[in-house]
Each structure stands twice: as C-alpha cells, then as structure tokens.
C-alpha cells in the first residue's frame, strides 16, 4: 500500500509574549514586550499508509494537536515538509481539505442554537454532494451512530456524547480519504465510545479511510490502532505497530517478592521502579529482554530464600508511561 501521509523533519515553534504578574508589569509590557519561543514540535518524521488507523499518543503538551493542525493545513510549519494525499496541506489547503475530515474534540463544527441536521446541510453545499447521495449518506451515518432523534434537537440541548457523534457525522459526510480525530472520545461513556469505534472500523473497511487519532484513552488504541506513534516534548519517541508495543509489554514483568531474610540489593541491570514495602518485601519492574526471569530468580535464590513470588505482565499503559518518563 502507498504512503498517503509523509512528514519529514517537521517543526513548529510559537512566539509567545511573556506576561508577568501584576498591573505594573502589564503596563511595562505595552512598551517593551519580551517574547519567548515555544518549540511545540521538533523534527518529527513519519509516514502513514493509506487505509490504516494510527494512534498518536503523548502526554499533555507533547505536541499532538499541533502536529494534527499542521497536517490539516491550519498551521503553517516552521520548517520541514508535509505531504498528504499528494498535497501540501498549508499552501494547497483549498484543494486539499476536500479530501480530509477533522474532528477536534474541543472545537465544535455545529451551530449551538440549531439542530445538527442543519449543519449537515452546510456540508452538502460545501462539498457539492448531490442531494440524493447526501441524504443516503447522512441517514446511514445517523443510523450507525444511533442519533436518529438527537440530530433534530438544538445542539445546545445535547449531551456531550450525543454532540460528539453529530460532530463525527459532520466530519465524515463528504467521505474524506483521511480523517483526523483529536481526542474524539474525550468524556464519552462506554457505549458512545463503542459506537464511534465501531464506526471507525467500518469506515476503514468499507471505504479504505485512513484515520489518525490522538487520545489519552488506551482502550481506543487497543480497539483501533494498528500502529502507534508516541510523541513526547515534540519529538517521536516510539513508532511501531501496536503488537510491537504489546510485545514490549510482554517482555516487561511486574515482580513482587517476599523473602525470609532481609532483602539483598535489588539494583541491577534490567530492574527498575524498585519499591521496598518492608525489609522483607519489595516490588519492581523487570525487563526480561535485559535480564531473563530465570537468571533473576537464580540470582535471588543465591542470596536469600524466597517465600513468595508474584510475576505479572506489565500493561501497555505502564509501558507507555515508562516511555514518557525516559
């Protein structure tokens, strides 16, 4: 399959006016304002295959939304190149945006005072969708996302989850090739999340839509993403398949020991996050790609007698946290 998105050495820095506290400083700033540069994205490169679902992960402030904004042509990159579906998103935005859909969890595309169904008609005009075609797509989306009744109520009166489903319909009516979802499931209950996830998978399968989504919800990643890109402090720190991430999780074990004599020193290569619960009990993380379980137990039994030993697999979430911290 071909790469539909290619990002090379992408960076974005913002110029931010420094504001100090207090009125005196505010007055001073009228005459001379100090600026700092905030580098939100640094030298990011990746490419994405057509028809895939990619999860963009990272802690708050990592630069996920900024990256998405550059990929959608909203922000101009400070340096580097982006090519999406053959377009340069910023300089060819007008033609480019026809082929993409976007949903920003925090920013509504609907009208607050009007029913969502009215906003859908705007999309029909905007993308020149033939009326009959539009109606059948619209009603199909409405049925799949189970908002038959809600779309006729003013958006103001909808719950967060109901509104988000409508936003989702708005972003997909024109059958975009690429869909960017910035925190699409934020604040949704399990059912709403499920409907949206089901739909994403359906669209990928039926229309070959490519999805790029940012989320803090590991369940989203678990259900959807075939590939995971993790960003921290504006740089890519992990870029591989979800199964590779899972494999990494499988390699890492959470270990808890209880010993008969005082615990020996646990500090060694492959062992991390050591927490001593008592002189006889401790928990730790063991990276079996560095130190095998067999070897670890052998070393322990040479120095003390084990009374209890618990070994469990680390969760993907724990691995990601580890990546954020490193």
């Amino acid at each position: 399959m071909v790469d539909i998105i290619r990002v090379q050495n992408l960076s974005k820095s913002f110029r931010v006016a420094k504001r100090k506290e207090g009125l005196k400083e505010a007055i001073k700033s009228i005459f001379s304002r100090e600026y700092t540069t905030k580098q939100a994205v640094k030298d990011v490169s990746f490419s994405i295959k057509e028809g895939s679902i990619v999860g963009l992960l990272g802690p708050n402030g990592a630069g996920k939304s900024t990256t998405i904004k550059m990929l959608t042509g909203i922000l101009s990159p400070s340096s580097g190149t982006v090519s999406c579906a053959g377009f340069n998103p910023f300089t060819q935005r007008k033609e480019y945006v026809r082929h993409i859909g976007a949903l920003f969890g925090q920013k509504s595309q609907l009208w607050w005072d009007l029913p969502a169904i009215d906003a859908f008609t705007l999309a029909q005009h905007l993308y020149d969708i033939p009326r009959a075609e539009f109606l059948s797509r619209r009603d199909d989306l409405i049925k799949r996302l189970r908002v038959e009744e809600e779309v006729y109520r003013p958006v103001r009166n909808l719950s967060l989850g109901e509104r988000m489903k409508c936003e989702f319909i708005m972003a997909l009516l024109h059958r975009p090739k690429i869909v960017f979802l910035d925190e699409p499931t934020i604040g949704l209950d399990v059912f709403a999340k499920e409907h949206i996830r089901e739909f994403i998978l359906y669209a990928q399968k039926t229309f070959g839509t490519t999805f790029i989504l940012t989320t803090h919800d590991m369940d989203d990643i678990d259900h959807l993403a075939q590939r995971v890109i993790i960003i921290n402090h504006g740089t890519v720190i992990f870029d591989d398949s979800l199964s590779a991430l899972r494999g990494q999780a499988n390699m890492v074990k959470n270990v808890r020991l209880v010993t008969q004599t005082r615990l020996p020193s646990l500090r060694q290569k492959g062992v991390s996050s050591i927490a001593r619960i008592s002189p006889y009990e401790a928990s730790m993380r063991l990276d079996t790609s560095i130190l095998s379980l067999q070897e670890f137990i052998t070393r322990m039994t040479q120095e003390t007698v084990l009374i209890d030993l618990e070994v469990s697999r680390a969760s993907v979430e724990e691995i990601i946290k580890q990546l954020y911290l490193s």
């Binding site: 904004k69 909203i74 945006v97 595309q109």
Partner: peptide, 15 residues
C-alpha cells in the same frame, strides 16, 4: 480568541 477558527479553515474554499 476561542481558537475555533480552526474549523473554518477546513472548508474547501478561499478562507
């Protein structure tokens, strides 16, 4: 101010 201009820039027209 609200940052919602983003969504307007997604329309396939001269902004």
């Amino acid at each position: 101010k609200k940052g919602t201009m983003d969504t307007w820039l997604l329309a396939p027209m001269h902004p």
